[in-house]
Nucleic acid binder design. Structure first.
Lengths: 228, 228
DNA sequence: ATTGACGGATTGTTGAACAATCCCTCATTC
DNA sequence: GAATGAGGGATTGTTCAACAATCCGTCAAT
């Protein structure tokens, strides 16, 4: 017991004060991008951002490098750094990738016997959050819950790399929505889909869940492509 | 025709002189890491590497940031940058991710009608290269061909993000092999598996291909786990 | 309308400097 | 011998200043 407690303390300490300034700046910028405060296409001036955040240009450049690999920023040689703007090819590719990740995660979850317990509860919670938010007319929250739903589907695979890939995919999708005129209309139609997919998963019918998810992807991708 | 020629010239020019020094340094380091000249656990001193490559520490730090997200390097705050050393959890997670990526890519390829033509030829070519290399006793080349085989399986999905994820996964696997005493023994047993998987894919029997691939993953993961 | 020149703003990189941190060595204590 | 603490050197993380190169907008000339 003592050894476990000391380990926890060690892990706590590891997460405090171990972040570099570059890492922290990247966190701040990431939040601004994913929350739509920095819109796709926006140019991030080293001078301005550096002054605003009180860090040197070199440190900021390190932070930029951290974020370009997350595909949130795009680095154009000699022209600067921009919040990424996704085009229809990006959307197509994102959905191809999602099909592989999320369907594979459900299958993997079934193989590992994880379509139950806490992983399943996370999926359920996201569905319920979305339904509640829709009933309250909070479309922003519906969108957030929808993303949580998909992140939870990915988490059925119990894989750090899948979780991370899902996180990046969903961050990119946020960029797509931020560039849209009326993104709210995008999420509501799929609440019933989410509920159905969840129920298949909960019933252990993973192949049905996969089929329902694929149908959702087809519809969502088509709707998104039409909106860009 | 003229417009096409001008476009090609434009693309050529875009690939010349558009790389930053940080990007180039990252390329050099990436090659050293993936080719085993910098072994897992090796510490990369800013002073030494900067002097050797003739770049400033700031530029080198940018390059390091580029490579940490590719999971080739690991950045330890206040301690420096190291070539990543993978542990058994990493291997487990890599194989989980591969199952999802590669099996999903075969399925996606089938849906898109791509288990034919050039994508299939790339798979066949990698199998043949491996068999030729094994006949010549060139185990290094067998290993390389094996990686090409799996990259080609991923490419069946026709997705840039899948290709990229596969590329990263295979780079990480190289790190695992570089840390092994006798990695050659790892690739040869699977030549027949590769041939069988290829033949299922070529016959359009994607579910059989997936089953054979999963069996391969189970065996390869077990062998690798035992070797770490 | 097109082209070329110019200038200002910005990026990319370098190098120096300094504070903070880490790690190794050595001395001291039990 | 093992554990602890101090000291010092090496290195990292960051800042700053400087400069060359590049880009882009503006203006003048054709």
């Amino acid at each position: 017991m003592t050894a476990e407690w000391v380990e926890e303390l060690g892990a706590e300490r590891a997460s405090l004060g171990r972040a570099s300034t570059a890492g922290r700046v990247a966190d701040v910028l990431r939040a601004h991008v994913t929350q739509g405060r920095l819109l796709p296409g926006t140019r991030l001036s080293e001078e301005e951002i550096g002054a605003a955040l009180g860090v040197s240009r070199n440190t900021l450049r390190e932070a930029f490098r951290l974020l370009t690999h997350e595909r949130l920023l795009t680095h154009e040689f000699n022209r600067g750094v921009f919040v990424r703007r996704l085009d229809s090819d990006d959307v197509r590719d994102l959905y191809a990738f999602r099909r592989i990740l999320e369907c594979g995660a459900i299958r993997r979850g079934a193989t590992l016997g994880r379509l139950t317990g806490e992983p399943l509860d996370d999926v359920r919670r996201a569905v319920e959050t979305g339904e509640r938010a829709a009933a309250a007319g909070d479309w922003n929250e519906v969108g957030t819950a929808n993303m949580e739903f998909h992140q939870a589907l990915g988490a059925l695979a119990d894989s750090q790399r899948v979780d991370e890939a899902m996180s990046h995919v969903l961050a990119e999708l946020r960029l797509v929505f931020h560039a849209m005129a009326a993104p709210e209309a995008f999420h509501q139609p799929y609440l019933e889909d989410n509920r159905r997919i969840f129920e298949f998963v909960a019933a252990g019918s993973h192949e049905e869940a996969v089929a329902a998810l694929l149908a959702y992807f087809d519809a969502a991708e088509a709707q998104l492509a039409a909106a860009i």
